[in-house]
Structures are given as C-alpha cells and as structure tokens.
Nucleic acid binder design. Structure first.
Lengths: 124, 124
DNA sequence: ATAACATATGTACATATATTCATATAAGGT
DNA sequence: ACCTTATATGAATATATGTACATATGTTAT
C-alpha cells in the first residue's frame, strides 16, 4: 500500500485548488524561508538582537557569544548573504549593523508569540 | 596561534558589556529561534501560508505541496510542537489552522523585507 | 470484530548546517 | 619591506534535519 504524488487522494479538491491560488500571491517562498533560516540559530538570533542596540565588530560579537572569531565570522557571512546585516569598515575593523528594522520587527513578533504561548492566552 | 573562549581579545569591552545587558531583555532566545526554525523550511512555510486562508487537513496539505502524507504529517508535528498550528478533529479528519495571527505577521514582515531587498531601497 | 481510512510515529538514510582548524586576505604600524 | 591585527574563507567533521518506508493509532462503517 504505497501512495505518492501520483495516486494521491484529495479529500477536498476545491479547498486544495483555492489554497493553490491563494499561495500564488506569496511568491519568493524560498527567499522568505531563507530569511527565517537565518534567524533559526540561537547564536545568530543573539547577534541580530545585539546589533539592534548598536553596531558591533566581529571580534566583539564573538566575545559576546563566547565563540571563536572564525565561527562568528561564518555566522556573519550567513547573515550578510541573507541580507540581514551590512557592514562598514573602519581601518581593520568591520562594524556590522542591521540592514533595516524588519529584522527587529520579526524578533518582536516572535517574542510576543513565545510569551503568549508560555503564559496564557488559553485556547481562545 | 589558537584562540578560544579563554584567551579572547575584546576590542570594545564596554560595547560587549552593554550588549550583554541589552540581551538580557531578550530571554527565551532558544524558543524564538525554534519558532523561526519552524518557518525556515519552504514546505512548512507554504503550509503556514495556506492555513492563513483556511483550515485544512493533512491529506489536502500533502496534495497541495505534492509530498507524501507521511511527510506532511511530520511537518505538522513540527509546526504543532512549536505552537504555530492547532487542530480540531472531525471524524477521522484532523483540520489544522494557525494558532494566532503572529504567524502571518512574521510572514508579512518577511515578504516586505524580501521585496525591498530585491527591488530597491538603495542602501540609504 | 473486522475492514477501511486519516493521521501519527519510528527508523533509516541522505543532505544540510555549525563548528573547528588551517590558511588567506586586507589594513595598519614599524 | 615586515609583522601584527581583524576578518574571511576552505576543508573536515560532527550534528541536525527532511524524506521515505513501514508500522501503529484512532475513528467510522459494516
């Protein structure tokens, strides 16, 4: 008894169709999931939050998290490649900051959500 | 020449200290990153977006994404365990829906961010 | 009770990700 | 030029994650 994409039963065909149409309004799914992926690591999340308060260099971020500078640099590479942070150079030092405040908006919604899940909002 | 947590240089000690204090306001880092992790998979992201339009059963979600029902069920387990969705049973069918609208708020901020990164907002 | 169906769960495996170590680049100081 | 500092990058390894397959659970109908 195997089922795959081919011999698939669809209970509510109309619902699936509507959902498919609804989903069309949301393109760039891949990019969005990449954005969330960038925030999906506790270390990177802390980096992002720290950068909300001020710009910081890799060295300081590494110290803050208690990880090697190499590890921190790798994380910054990811945050850069996914457009969460940008940097400016001052001599040998690269100062990182958030690209915009969407990033912190995401963190704030997440904070609210976690809090509500934790303390209350008893199922409707 | 190795450096680890022990023989670490800190360029801006005061900055690191301030950042550390700032970070204290953001507890439950782990939970928040778990929330983002839940949205970090394209499949789950599509499921979440689809559920914003209406409640749907596992079977339909599997059909929508073109994956096995088992795979869809595993994804729902993750979304459930991270408090993004809840379900109600009607007979044999479990209908899933989003727990609240924080989830879609996250998606919307992500959408905005991706769009701006893509088309413009030339570096300040 | 048995059968059929919707969903859940366990295990295994392939792939992705994070961290470490080694090395490379870029800037500043001597 | 050389050396040091700050950061980046590459390769290797350990761990995490997603999917498939097999099986289990719970619900309805007969």
């Amino acid at each position: 008894m195997k089922k795959d994409q081919c011999d698939r039963r669809i209970i509510h065909a109309a619902v699936v169709e509507e959902a498919r149409i609804f989903l069309q309004d949301y393109s760039e799914i891949e990019e969005k999931s990449e954005l969330f992926k960038a925030l999906a690591d506790p270390g990177r999340l802390q980096i992002v939050i720290a950068l909300a308060s001020r710009e910081m260099c890799v060295c300081d971020l590494a110290a803050l998290l208690g990880v090697s500078e190499s590890a921190a640099s790798h994380q910054m590479r990811i945050l850069r490649s996914k457009n969460l942070v940008k940097n400016r150079r001052d001599g040998q030092v690269l100062y990182y900051r958030l690209v915009d405040d969407h990033v912190m908006q995401l963190v704030d919604v997440a904070r609210l959500h976690v809090k509500e899940m934790k303390y209350g909002e008893a199922d409707e």
